[in-house]
Design a protein around this nucleic acid. Structure first.
Ligand SMILES: NC(=O)c1ccc[n+]([C@@H]2O[C@H](COP(=O)([O-])OP(=O)(O)OC[C@H]3O[C@@H](n4cnc5c(N)ncnc54)[C@H](O)[C@@H]3O)[C@@H](O)[C@H]2O)c1
Ligand SMILES: NC(=O)c1ccc[n+]([C@@H]2O[C@H](COP(=O)([O-])OP(=O)(O)OC[C@H]3O[C@@H](n4cnc5c(N)ncnc54)[C@H](O)[C@@H]3O)[C@@H](O)[C@H]2O)c1
Lengths: 254, 254
DNA sequence: ATGTCTTTGTGAACGCGTGCACAAAGATGG
DNA sequence: CCATCTTTGTGCACGCGTTCACAAAGACAT
């Protein structure tokens, strides 16, 4: 889901398909749960069920990492946890900065799921001067002016943007200029970044709209007003056309 | 990203590919911005740039909706806003319940991006009795006991889960039993739902792990410790050691 | 009308991801 | 050591999604 200039022409980074990479955290989560229950081994079938995927897919995913299974037995849980962690780069510590400590930013700062993997909140940054020094989740909020210094001093390479949409690109530019090369964007905007910078976005509104689409399909499969097929569109250059299709507003002048 | 039992064997709902549906909200956002600036028409090239996608892809996406463009001119902004809104089901009002009003749930409740499209927060629900009646974002929190009544009375079909992971499946089951058929899940768990129910998940931790993967690739393309090839795995049959899964895992005895 | 110029809509090629199905590997038991 | 049984690893086919490239549609000028 990299947006903007974050093209992925051959980002099959080192032979591991992007789709597989996206599932590794899922497997890791399931394996961690098994590990906590001291389960020694799992079959691909069991693990796939726990992760909510097809077992053949899981086996193929693991085959990209190497042959870590034992035929007739399955996979060693602890060993696989380690291998996936290493592949994902979770054996090292990743300092993260969160920019925009409002409703969402504060929730993220309080989120325990950060530290549970190798992620550490290095700093909380906000433009509001009245917030400076105020602790959120035990960490004092710092002013935007400090952004560059923090990133350089702590060697931060991952930034989280939780500012209003209008500020996101500007914040993004500063992060990138200061050395951040991975961005998680919660603001509803398309970010432009130079090559080599990865952007992933989380957009609640988009998710809801996708759900609404399917919901509408489920509800109005046969009964709702209007047919299933959209009415022949009126081309507009000259309005005064037969325009009103159904009960439609939106007639445009050329 | 439907998980669990939400299989999508032929969910090409009515000829509109899933990938296209996922991009429609993106186009809609860009078009809304143009509309607010009173821009009358856009070319596929311009709109694609604004939405961060390829222009050919955009045209093909729109072609699934119908022929709404004018050759030599482009697309009428207002008309397209309406058509996409209608296709996504945003011309009607979607009541939504949020379950689990903690850090994240409260942030979601306060989020203005809900109402900006056709989504309306019908209720906030939490299991903590001490929260009952306390207003969050102007809406009084209601106890979980009320869940079924609220959903039935308001005809809620979309639910948002922001509870701890351990409670998510149970909450999900209750939502589904009460009539919810679309779920947006923020808890880091795989949800099992019956056919006909859509689940989408938002998982911050997974996004960060994917970023970490690419970050590691960028950093250690040649220099980092260890080679590229993983060491040959050892096989485990008899564990014998239960899990000190504290920090350094996985050296396998043969 | 006719010609030119812009931009859409889409046919076709390609590549990625998914899932089936099975041979090979290895564990386990005799 | 051999037979059997379980489960992995993967070759293969298929379908979806992306992108290119271009003919056709239409605006606009003359
Ligand atoms: N709250 C949610 O549940 C939610 C959900 C989805 C998306 N979002 C998006 O996340 C973003 C934040 O949402 P929110 O509800 O926390 O908003 P908010 O207004 O509560 O918080 C925004 C914070 O960003 C700070 N800020 C503004 N400009 C800044 C800048 N240039 N540099 C640093 N900090 C700056 C503000 O001082 C404020 O503290 C928005 O873009 C919103 O659309 C929020
Ligand atoms: N905070 C974040 O930024 C963040 C990010 C990603 C994921 N998450 C996930 O979102 C979920 C919520 O996170 P949070 O930080 O808000 O946690 P939280 O502990 O602050 O809030 C959880 C809320 O859910 C309520 N709850 C518990 N069981 C319930 C039940 N059975 N029915 C109804 N309500 C119940 C609790 O009373 C509490 O108010 C967690 O699963 C977390 O992993 C949070």
């Amino acid at each position: 889901m990299a947006t903007g200039r974050a093209h992925r022409p051959a980002t099959r980074s080192r032979g591991i398909p992007e789709a597989t990479v996206a599932r590794l955290p899922l497997y890791l989560r399931a394996l961690t749960a098994l590990s906590e229950r001291s389960v020694p081994t799992v079959s691909s079938e069991e693990l796939a069920a726990a992760a909510g995927v097809n077992s053949a897919k899981l086996r193929k995913d693991f085959s990209y990492l190497g042959s870590y299974g034992t035929r007739g037995v399955g996979y060693d849980v602890e060993y696989l946890v380690y291998q996936i962690s290493r592949e994902l780069g979770l054996t090292q510590d990743w300092p993260v900065v969160i920019v925009g400590i409002g409703n969402l930013g504060a929730a993220l700062a309080n989120y325990g799921g950060f530290a549970s993997r190798g992620f550490r909140v290095a700093a909380l940054i906000d433009a509001d001067p009245s917030m400076a020094g105020k602790p959120v989740a035990g960490i004092p909020v710092q002013h935007t002016d400090e952004l560059e210094a923090i990133i350089r001093n702590d060697g931060v390479s991952i930034g989280v943007i939780a500012t209003p949409a209008g500020a996101a690109q500007q914040v993004c530019d500063r992060l990138v200029a200061a050395g951040v090369t991975s961005i998680l964007n919660f603001a509803p905007t398309v970010l432009s970044v130079p090559d080599g910078v990865d952007v992933r976005k989380v957009d609640l509104s988009i998710e809801l709209q996708i759900l609404a689409f399917h919901e509408q399909r489920k509800a109005g499969e046969e009964a709702t007003s209007g047919g299933a097929a959209p009415p022949p569109p009126a081309v507009r250059t000259r309005p005064a056309d037969d325009g009103p299709d159904g009960e439609v507003p939106a007639v445009m002048p050329a």
